[in-house]
Structures are given as structure tokens and as C-alpha cells.
Amino acid sequence: MADVTLSPLHRADGSATFTSNGYSVVAAVNGPIEVQRRDELPEEAAIDVAIRPAAGVGGVRERHLESILQSTLRHVILVSAHPRTLIQVTLQIISSTEGSFNVGDLPQATSNLPILPALLQASILALLSTSIPLSMTLTATLVAVDGQRLKSDPSAEELKVASSIHVFAFSSHGNLLVVESEGEFGIETWEEAYQNARLACRGDEENDSESEDVSMDSDNDTKLEDVLRIAVRQKVAREQKWKLDLRSATT
């Protein structure tokens, strides 16, 4: 389903790649580092987000996504722990479902939202690979609505015919961090999309956090939160390897 690598880049303080559903993003976090005087905040760390597209230089789309990410990360990172410093988050889009050959389609015609979940996931994973304190983790997903049908992780063709698309990001406490919707929809549709997204991210329905039995008709049974946990578990296991060797050597 989703492919995660932690710390692939060696110069950055923390980094991660996140590949899912045709989108591949690498995120790098540097910090806490020195901040320019003009950006300095006396009681908090300043957060700077930069998104670089796969092809070309960034434009309005990247600035829009950067502002969503920046305001989200400000709530996730414990900024009061490092006042007068800078936490620099850079995201490079490695590949997206938009083809490399623009013959006909105007790039402005497609939505900004489909890549947002991958950007959010990659940034959180990169932050987890640094020692920057966070107050929560997050998981994010995209739901496309086509008439009556809801589809998680829609393909590029499904997105083209969708009547509305919704991005949801949940915190590790179960609350909503990001809600971005585009298209025509009613409140009932939104509720359904919300439940669908919650299932994909956290594996539970809103009022049913005790439920172990989750029936999903999609083929991806691993909820996103688990993907995060497994990646971190593997990283910790690699780092603790020497301890196991020590234990077995001394027993």
C-alpha cells in the first residue's frame, strides 16, 4: 500500500520518503537551526516549509500547499521548546500522477489536493526521524466521491470523474487536523467521506474506538497509523541491534 523509508538523506537532520498511490515525496527536516533576524520569534521556533515540484519551478499551487502544511505543522511541533530557532521542512516531489508530457492539458486544470496527504505523511515521518519534539503524530488520506460511490486512494482517472474530493488528516488523538474539500457535495456525503477516511487512517469508526473487527472491502487492510508505527519500529530495531548482540554475548 504505502512505502516508507526513514532517513534516506544523510545531510539533513531528519528525512523520509513516502510513496503511495502514484505519488512519491521525499521530505527533509533541518532543525532547530539558526534563524534570520527578521523571521525570529521570541518564544517559539519559526517553521519554514518549502515544496519543490517534480518538474519546473514552483508556483501558486506549491505556495498554497506550503501554507496548509505550515499551519498544520505549527500545531504538531512543540515550538515553545526551541525559541528563536528555525525548523526548516523541505519537500521534493519525486513523482506524481501528472505525466511528464503536457500535450493539451493545462496544468492549472488539475486540483492541488491529491498530493496533499503524501506531503503531510512525508513531513511527519521526517519529523519523527529527528529529535524535534512533537505533541502528536498525524495520518492523512484522500477520498474521492463519484455520485454515490466513495473511493479511498483514488487513481488519476477516478479523480478526473469525481464530483468531489476530500483530504482529511487525523491526529494521533483522533481529532481532525486538516479538512480540505473541492467539488459539489452535501453534508451527508461529507460525513460518509469523513468516516471512510477515518477508517483508512485510524481503522475505527468515530464512536467505535474499541472495535477490533474492521470490515473493509478495499484491498489495503493496513491502516495508515500502523504503517507509521511499523516504519519507526524497524528504525528502532536497527538502532538497538548492538544491544541484542551484547545481550546474547554476555548470556
Binding site: A12, V26, Q88, Q92
Partner: peptide
């Protein structure tokens, strides 16, 4: 040909 160095490569 565009080359843009970013903080990804080095702070």
C-alpha cells in the same frame, strides 16, 4: 536545464 539547490541537500 534547471538546477536549484535546496535545504534537502544541505542546510
Amino acid at each position: 536545464i534547471t538546477t536549484e539547490l535546496s535545504p534537502l541537500a544541505s542546510p
